[in-house]
Simulated scan of single mutants.
Amino acid sequence: MTAAPTGARRRPLLAAARGSFVWGYAAITVFGFAFVAISAFKSNAEIFADPFALPESWGFDNLTRAWTTAHIGDYFVNTALVAVVTTVLSTLLAATVAYTIVRMRFPGSSLVYLAFAIGVGVPLQALLVPTFIVMNNAGLLDSLTSLVLVYTAFALPKAVFLLAAFMKDVPGELEEAALIDGAGELTIFRRVVMPLCRPALATVAVLEFLGAWNEYVYASVLIRSPENRTISLGLASFSSEYASDYGLIAAGVLITVVPVVIVYVLLQRHVVAGLSTGALKG
């Protein structure tokens, strides 16, 4: 009997190792989230008595205090405004730029696409000082507008790169049929290309929302006043100010995480479709 090739024997082991890693990582993540969520409803005494036990009573005192007394509510509103505006602007601009590069060919379009592709690999920390100088000269320091502009600009290379790669595989016959029916470029873009790119658009939107929601470095440099803090800045100061109140800290973390989970759950189907399609195309 011929022995099985070494590669064939290793495949089940590699698949088992990958599966174990994924399920182990998922278990740790779910456990951490559950621990924080339960702790948000417990007093310090209950946490110290038994960190893993359920609360004696499911009160909302910690959540209320975190939202009002610790000003997490103000930070939440600021962050939601910045994240939503950034997501809408970056997604629409990236879709427009990607369509222009892919479908409306012009001299130098390949170089423009290459510039966006190179921009994906530029470390954002390297642009921190120039960004601060530009925002200071423009008089936009300590404003939410500065965060929206910066986050949108930094989101464009990745978004354009992803959407352009997706749009290249949209059948050109559909656009030709729309042109024959008398549709203009704007109509084709809105009615033909955008619906077909919905999975990619959802993927880009989720990535940009998460990036804007969790960003800390640029917010810490561009924002100074407490009333303009985002939730990442607020949570950092909040954790140091209420370092001994673990239930309150857990409530603040829970308020921070819940919107991210909701956004992903709502767009999960489109994101998975977009990533799966991208994997097949690759």
Rank of each mutant, 00 (worst) to 15 (best):
78 N>V: 04
112 V>W: 12
245 D>M: 08
51 P>R: 10
25 Y>R: 03
45 A>H: 07
144 L>H: 05
53 A>Y: 03
110 S>Q: 13
244 S>A: 15
233 L>C: 01
92 L>F: 13
163 L>K: 09
38 I>G: 09
281 K>L: 04
211 G>D: 07
129 V>H: 10
2 T>V: 11
264 Y>T: 03
221 V>W: 00
18 R>Q: 14
113 Y>S: 15
77 V>A: 12
222 L>V: 09
160 V>Y: 00
101 I>C: 06
239 S>N: 13
13 L>F: 07
88 V>I: 14
29 T>Y: 01
192 V>W: 03
266 L>Q: 06
245 D>A: 12
16 A>L: 12
140 L>W: 13
165 A>V: 03
215 E>L: 05
52 F>P: 00
280 L>I: 15
59 G>A: 14
12 P>Y: 01
97 V>E: 03
262 I>G: 05
164 A>F: 02
65 R>C: 04
145 T>Y: 15
221 V>S: 04
256 T>G: 07
282 G>Q: 01
25 Y>W: 15
75 Y>N: 09
88 V>T: 10
102 V>W: 00
93 L>S: 07
245 D>I: 01
58 W>M: 08
55 P>S: 05
12 P>K: 07
136 N>S: 13
69 T>C: 05
177 A>Y: 07
167 M>K: 09
203 T>K: 08
14 L>K: 08
281 K>G: 13
12 P>S: 00
118 I>V: 15
149 L>N: 04
134 V>Y: 10
13 L>M: 04
5 P>H: 13
105 R>M: 08
143 S>K: 01
195 P>A: 02
139 G>N: 12
171 P>L: 05
43 S>K: 04
